[in-house]
Each structure stands twice: as C-alpha cells, then as structure tokens.
C-alpha cells in the first residue's frame, strides 16, 4: 500500500485526470437520489453521500445486457471492452464486488463480468454512515483490497491509499496533485476513521444461519404478510447475483440477441420449474431463502438498502432481532 494526500481543492483536477483511463462512472444526484452514472463534469458528482439507491454493481453487471448475438443457430459473443473508472465506491460496495468476484470468477469464469471488472479502475471513498448501516456486523466496515485507489475524507484533504500498480499509474500521471503524508495526516486519517466507526451501530449476527433454519413458517409469516413481492430488496442489493436469460428476435425472425437481466428470488417465478411446480411458491419461503442467502451464507455487506427501500418497511435487523428472541 502506498499512502498519499490529496487536498480537496485538487479533487476536481484529479477528476479531470482520470478520464484518460476510461469512461468515468461516479455518484450523481438526481431526484434526490444518488446513483452511479457516467459523469463528465465534476459539478455533476456528489462525493458526500450516505448510500446510492442502486449500488454500483450495475456498472460491472448491467441490469440487462446482450450476451450473444445469433443468426439461426449460429451464436456470436458480445463483449463489452470499454475501459471504465468507477469513482466514489464505499467500503461495503467494494466488499460486495469481492463477493460477486467469488461467484462470477469461479470456474467456469463468466467472461462478461470478468472483462468488465478487469477493465475497471475502482476508486474507493469513505462513507457517511447512518442508522441503517450495520457493516460492522457483516465485517464490511473497512476494506484493504478490492480497489485501486481509496480516498478517505479527512476534512480539508483526502488521505489516499494506493493498492495496485494500476492505481499507482493513475497517481503518478497526476503527480503534482498528490503530496506525501506526514504524521499529522496519519493522525487525522485515524481520527476520521474512528469517528466513522462510532457512527455505525454495533450488531451481532452469531448463530443467525442456524436460527433462519430453525424457525418455522409461522415465524416468517409475521414478516411475509407485509411483503408485496415487489423485489425492491434484491434490486437494491449490492451482492444479489441472480439473473434470468432470454432471447429476443429481430424482425426477420431468424437473428436476434440473447440477453440476461437481473432476476429476484423474491419474485414468484424464481423457483418455478417446467411442469408448473414451484419450489418456493409462498412469500414466506422466498423471504426465508433471501435471508438464508444474505445472512445464512453471509452474502451481506450491511449497507441497509433492503430496509431503506422496502415499501412496507420490512427491516432486516428487525428480522434478526426476532430470530434471536
């Protein structure tokens, strides 16, 4: 790791410099919500934010993407070879990418994910936690890898961590913007991180996996009765990996595209098989499966999005509390 310092009045110049490494995606505010979008001007970017509504996952794993072109039964691959810079990613969302890596890069590798992640420069950013965050419980409060560069907000400067050769190249490209760190900077970095730490509530998830399995239907019904089966919780989840594959024909009815798009285990069709049998027919079964995936298999980074964006206020930590009662 290399440590540097970037004064806040230099951040705009830094932003301008990273465009030479790829198309820049950054947190942009619109309709009061933060989302990761293509950002050309620094004035569009909001670096001080708590959580984006949709996680940055879609930059690497688009909501919908063509994976193949076909003409009759000849198939051709469609691979995105755009170089990207993903700026302003919080610790939890970086750790979520590491979880997605485990799935998508495990053999056989998913080339669509792999091509994008390897062409994407990730610049992390320290966050502003709120009461919905529980990243301490999921061990995703702080990350030491999964990024090229990390910017820690320390008041009037960013304490910068450089983790990869690619990250080093970026900082050396704009050498004049960065300064060496001294003892005082280090102290301010530690102070800022400590303050951030204090803001996240302590939670405990021990034996949650077993409790999810032990609780019966009636337990899950308490929560599933409020569930609208809308799939919002999975849509906003940075670790959700499920996808659907489908074809679309062109007008000649011979050629077309094979797409994949995000799917949700909270939707009824997820567990359906060909003869009409459904392995997770009821909402309570789907809710338990989601909790099992997130907290039983620990594929959760404690970002709080599923709670924040649930239209009926189903709170994942309320379920955790009830599981333990």
């Amino acid at each position: 790791m290399k440590f540097l310092k970037l004064k806040k009045d230099q951040i705009e110049d830094f932003f301008d410099s990273i465009h030479s490494f790829g198309i820049v995606y950054a947190p942009v505010k619109s309709d009061g919500k933060i989302s990761f979008r293509r950002a050309q001007n620094f004035s569009d970017v909001s670096l001080e934010y708590t959580r984006s509504q949709i996680p940055p996952k879609h930059v690497i794993l688009p909501m919908e993407e063509p994976i193949l072109k076909f003409r009759e039964e000849e198939y051709f691959e469609v691979v995105d070879d755009e170089n990207k810079v993903l700026l302003g990613v919080h610790h939890c969302d970086i750790i979520a990418f590491k979880m997605l890596d485990e799935v998508y890069l495990q053999p056989p590798k998913d080339i669509y994910y792999h091509e994008r992640i390897k062409r994407t420069l990730i610049i992390g950013l320290s966050c502003i936690p709120d009461n919905y965050c529980f990243c301490k419980a999921t061990n995703s409060f702080y990350t030491s890898d999964g990024f090229d560069i990390f910017l820690h907000d320390c008041g009037d400067f960013y304490f910068v961590r450089v983790a990869t050769p690619r990250g080093l190249k970026v900082t050396e490209n704009s050498k004049n913007l960065f300064e060496k760190v001294d003892e005082k900077d280090m102290e301010l970095f530690v102070k800022a991180e400590k303050e951030r730490f204090e803001r996240v509530k302590g939670k405990n998830l021990w034996m949650i996996g077993d409790l999810i399995e032990l609780r019966d239907e009636n337990f899950w019904k308490i929560f599933s009765e409020r569930c609208l089966n809308c799939g919002n919780c999975t849509l906003v989840c940075p670790t959700c990996q499920c996808f659907e594959v489908y074809d679309e024909l062109e007008e000649d009815l011979k050629s077309g595209n094979r797409f994949r798009r995000w799917d949700s285990c909270m939707l009824r069709a997820h567990g359906l098989v060909a003869d009409g049998h459904n392995f997770r027919e009821r909402t309570e079964e789907r809710l338990r499966n989601r909790l099992s995936c997130k907290l039983g298999e620990m594929r959760c980074v404690g970002c709080g999005r599923c709670t924040v964006y649930c239209p009926t206020g189903i709170d994942i930590l309320e379920i955790v509390r009830a599981l333990k009662e």
């Binding site: 998913d110 990996q241 799917d263 997820h270 995936c293």
Partner: peptide, 8 residues
C-alpha cells in the same frame, strides 16, 4: 455454472 442461483 453456479451463477444465476435459480437452483439454490
């Protein structure tokens, strides 16, 4: 290939 998770 163990990615789409429909068969969990």
């Amino acid at each position: 290939t163990g990615k789409c998770r429909h068969c969990v």
